[in-house]
């Protein structure tokens, strides 16, 4: 369980997060959605202890962010890096192997190699393991970063806009894999998404943010309504119900 209490955050003097109180239950897939600049990524990076907390508290399981050592938290919580920031020529297997670092601290053993093989298999990358990152497609690259986070073997997994620049096939693939991690492995997956329809299709819970506050939260069918789209996103789109879940007609 991720518990956030009384969280405030300012960037360059401007408030980005205001009085956030939020509990993300253990297990399942939670999507953070909201318009640009709502503070989703800031919130995610605070949970991932990548920025210092200015005011408030965040705990991930029994660990209090800001107090727990980086290396201990790395065995509990994985953050999928932004693949666009990585220009290094790394082989896919090497990249996935980095996910094992918190466990072996530089000396990978047989168990680590087995985990890497499992991660490659699960994300259908076994045939590409010796390819360099700049030699595979955008979707394969993104899958490799997700496989790396999976290889980290943590209870919690955070992803910041993993579907950026992916085509529909790659995006659905990745979300299905994330769904699998929640359903089959019992992981708690928190993902920042831009496309509400992906969020309603794959998430158990939505957390909607607007101007640094939580605007709504709950199951997709309860949260996504015409009113929400108008009030939070400032657009008048109709929400239809298709196969039991809300679908925004864009």
């Amino acid at each position: 369980m991720i518990r956030i209490t009384d969280l405030h955050h300012r960037l360059g003097g401007a408030p980005v997060l205001n009085d956030i109180d939020l509990t993300i239950p253990h297990g399942g897939l939670t999507a953070l959605i909201g318009p640009n600049g709502a503070g989703k990524s800031t919130l995610l990076s605070l949970i991932a202890r990548l920025r210092p907390i200015q005011r408030g508290r965040i705990s991930v399981g029994p660990h209090e962010i800001g107090k727990v050592a980086d290396r201990d938290l790395a065995r509990v919580l994985a953050v999928m890096p932004q693949s666009t920031e990585v220009s290094a020529r790394l082989r896919l297997a090497e990249l996935v192997g980095f996910g094992r670092y918190p466990w072996h601290r530089g000396r990978p053993g047989a168990e680590d190699r087995a985990q890497v093989d499992r991660a490659l298999e699960r994300f259908s990358l076994t045939d590409l393991r010796d390819r360099f990152l700049d030699e595979v497609s955008g979707g394969q690259k993104q899958r490799a970063f997700a496989a790396m986070a999976y290889a980290q073997d943590t209870d919690y997994l955070l992803l910041d806009e993993p579907l950026n620049n992916l085509d529909i096939a790659a995006a659905r693939d990745l979300m299905r894999l994330m769904r699998g991690l929640a359903d089959e492995d019992g992981k708690t997956v928190v993902v920042v998404l831009h496309d509400i329809n992906y969020a309603t299709a794959f998430a158990d819970r939505l957390v909607v943010m607007k101007e640094g506050r939580i605007a709504a939260q709950g199951a997709p069918s309860e949260v996504v309504t015409d009113t929400l789209l108008a009030e939070v996103f400032g657009t008048t789109a109709r929400v239809a119900e298709v196969e039991g879940r809300p679908l925004v007609i864009v």
Binding site: A69, D70, P81, E85, F98, Y101
Partner: peptide
């Protein structure tokens, strides 16, 4: 060498893996 290579992922990602 291994730790340095982790830095190619960016500082945030390296920290998230527990690297100092």
């Amino acid at each position: 060498a291994d730790r340095l290579t982790l830095l190619t992922l960016g500082e945030d990602a390296a920290r998230a893996l527990g690297l100092n």
